[in-house]
């Protein structure tokens, strides 16, 4: 990938991130932060490559820690985000349907 192409990708991805989040309601701030935290867990693939190409014991040790931390980021981020979002329900889908429609 040439430098200028990489720069374009960087610029476009930055605008994408901004636009995707721009209209998020406050009620989803915490799950969304957790979700974006999960997304940068993609660092796992880089850590795998780094460890996969490591030669010396030092490189292997650091690479091992990298993969371990990265999989913690990805899996932990996924589990807590999924747990939070699973609970978001509208009135119609409540377990105890006794609202009588008298809600705002």
């Amino acid at each position: 990938m040439t430098g200028i192409i990489a720069l374009y990708i960087f610029m476009l991805a930055a605008f994408t991130g901004y636009e995707v989040i721009a209209r998020v309601p406050v009620i989803l701030h915490t799950p969304l932060m957790s979700g974006s935290n999960f997304v940068h867990g993609i660092v796992l693939v880089g850590a795998m490559v780094a460890l996969g190409q490591a030669h010396t014991p030092l490189e292997k040790a650091i690479g091992f820690i990298g993969v371990l931390l990265a999989s913690g980021n990805a899996v932990g981020g996924y589990v807590v985000t999924e747990r939070m979002l699973e609970m978001f329900k509208a009135s119609g889908t409540r377990a105890k349907p006794n609202a009588k429609g008298a809600t705002g």
Binding site: A13, G17, Y18, V24, M33, S36, V39, G46
Partner: peptide, 26 residues
Amino acid sequence: AFEGFVLNNAAMIIAGTVVGSAGTLL
């Protein structure tokens, strides 16, 4: 994203940058 550039890994560049800008806005 920066380490993605080092490893020439597009998935890391895009996901990292998206989170970087979305996280800044947040």
